[in-house]
Write a protein that binds this DNA or RNA. Structure first.
Lengths: 263, 263
DNA sequence: TGGTAATGACTGATTCTGACTGAATTTTTC
DNA sequence: GAAAAATTCAGTCAGAATCAGTCATTACCA
């Protein structure tokens, strides 16, 4: 049986019964205790189940449009998310923008001792019951499609806070800078940039060369970009010439090349 | 049986009966006296039950994780919620406090054209995808147990907004006014009261005569209370003498008596 | 074929459990 | 009201269950 298949079976069983014992999974899956233990560890770290002594309980994701779309989070986005999470140190104060990729980042932050600030309802719901994470929600008008809080209230709230790092998503990126599709969103994100010491952009390679309705900011506000290995060498060089550190999350091969950091 | 499961069962039994003896739990759970004793100690330390000699009594209205996942609210709370929703007119701006009863109110608001303001993550998640509802989230430090945003950020946000009605929950109510268990929560709720024209309290009958850690406000800030028919006539009169309109949500029998409004 | 990821067996460490102890408290008896 | 009996309590202990981590082996991929 493949790893992925076994893990999704565990998830299904956990969802059905609310919680499962490790021993029952060993029996049903025919895998060893060590393997199942590792699977539970993985699923817990990614925020899909909650481990308890002797087993694990399912963490029910509310079925919303957003979650359905999230289920389709591409492999690229997951790789980007994992690499981004690796960049974040214990004890940091992280400001998380809304978006599917940042939600994946949030999953990988579960279990770590951090202060997380976000204006995304899905991210907040995900991290709400994590005792090790101090969660602060940036309120405002909740945009229905994505569950992100925007507008004047958000901007005012952001003026009162400060974070060591912003993890931001974008609708498109060109040499002119970043773009997004919503004017309210852009205003909120600008304030996020002001509130953070360091700006990390998560953007899959398809975003490069794309424009969108509203111009958000110039490239020079970015400190680093995490993207996938579909990006062209040309774009990497352009970004590095703008003083941005590039992290290319490719297929990982153990410790041989833990990071494609260039810059 | 797993630790979590056993403790959940103890909580459920305690909630059902109000008080349980240690010996009866030993019998029902099939665990040793030492183990049950340790469980009671744990649940007492986490504030979910109160130990007494020979057993323990249930305190607080926090539902166990089990019930939350099942989405269970008591019949009384559901009746209160439905009646409260009936009081709210189309187009109103409603400020919704956190709590299990207000969450039920939110369920009944779905499908109606309203502006909803809340500091509760569960409520926001519930209403997020409802296009007919304009949702505004009051941000702040997210209290883990309940998913309610509190603290300075919340207070500042509330200073910027205004609602036609506040639907508030409480830990206890006496002639001295309202009480709640958390100082941060109390401060946030006070600001909610200031932000609203009209204050509607939802409180099941068990809350009357109960006190809690922090005094929230006097009775005169309340405009109306929605409760269940377990309330004594004495309490109804006392409240009405304080100028509060009482809505008693009883067992409904068609349209025969749609409202037990007295006041 | 070489190298990496995944696996299962094993290890000592940690946590949980039930039995036991004497102390503290309540109830019964005189 | 005081002593005795019964009950409940907190704390200790050893055994059992579960845990995280290591290591050799196997499966898989380029």
């Amino acid at each position: 049986m493949l790893v992925e298949e076994r893990r999704s079976r565990i998830l299904r069983i956990a969802e059905e019964r609310g919680f499962v014992t490790l021993q029952s999974l060993v029996g049903e899956l025919g895998a060893s205790e060590s393997t199942v233990r590792r699977d539970l560890e993985f699923l817990d770290a990614s925020g899909q189940i909650q481990r308890t002594r002797g087993g694990a309980s399912f963490i029910g994701d509310t079925q919303s449009d957003f979650d359905v779309r999230r289920g389709l989070a591409s492999l690229e986005k997951q790789r980007i998310a994992r690499r981004t999470a690796e960049l974040i140190s214990e004890g940091e104060t992280v400001l998380l923008d809304g978006g599917t990729t940042t939600l994946e980042v949030a999953r990988h932050l579960a279990g770590r001792s951090l202060q997380v600030l976000t204006n995304s309802l899905p991210i907040a719901s995900l991290l709400m019951n994590r005792r090790e994470i101090e969660l602060i929600f940036i309120g405002g008008y909740v945009y229905p499609k994505t569950g992100v809080a925007l507008g004047e209230l958000s901007v005012t709230a952001l003026q009162q806070i400060h974070a060591s790092r912003l993890v931001m998503s974008t609708g498109g990126i060109t040499s002119d800078g970043l773009f997004n599709s919503n004017q309210l969103l852009v205003e909120t994100e600008r304030q996020m940039i002001r509130a953070a010491d360091r700006v990390t952009l998560v953007a899959d390679s398809s975003k490069f060369g794309q424009r969108a309705l509203s111009h958000l900011c110039a490239l020079d506000v970015l400190d680093e970009i995490v993207t996938d290995d579909g990006i062209s060498e040309e774009w990497v060089q352009r970004m590095e010439q703008s003083g941005i550190r590039m992290e290319v999350a490719g297929v990982e091969r153990g410790s041989r090349r833990p990071s494609a950091a260039l810059g």
